[in-house]
């Protein structure tokens, strides 16, 4: 464990001291904002994944098209030669 420092406090923290920070309205507001940011981040991540998936599918489709074009084989060449 890390190092620490012990301090002796002469005065007790007054209730008024902590009351300055007591604000449930602010907590609710922050909670709402962070929830919204989380939702937006989730939506963007989802959209990004969908777009990435579409791009991958397009690339695969193009690659397959490129490789499945009919190539002239030996027998067809022979037929052409015979005709000419």
């Amino acid at each position: 464990m890390g190092k620490h420092e012990i301090r002796l406090r002469r005065q007790r923290l007054s209730a008024r001291g902590s009351d300055r920070f007591r604000n449930y309205g602010a907590v609710l507001k922050q909670h709402g904002e962070e929830k919204r940011i989380k939702l937006i981040t989730r939506i963007f991540t989802f959209l990004f994944l969908i777009i990435a998936l579409i791009i991958v599918l397009i690339v695969i489709a193009r690659w397959e098209n490129k490789h499945s074009e009919p190539q002239p084989n030996a027998s067809s060449k022979e037929i052409i030669n015979k005709i000419t």
Binding site: G2, K3, H4, E5, I6, R7, L8, R9, R10, R12, L13
Partner: peptide, 18 residues
């Protein structure tokens, strides 16, 4: 907070409690 600020952890103890 302490990890982020890399400071020593503080324990502030009330004299009355001691």
């Amino acid at each position: 907070h302490y990890r982020k600020n890399k400071g020593n952890k503080i324990f502030s103890i009330e004299e009355l409690k001691v």
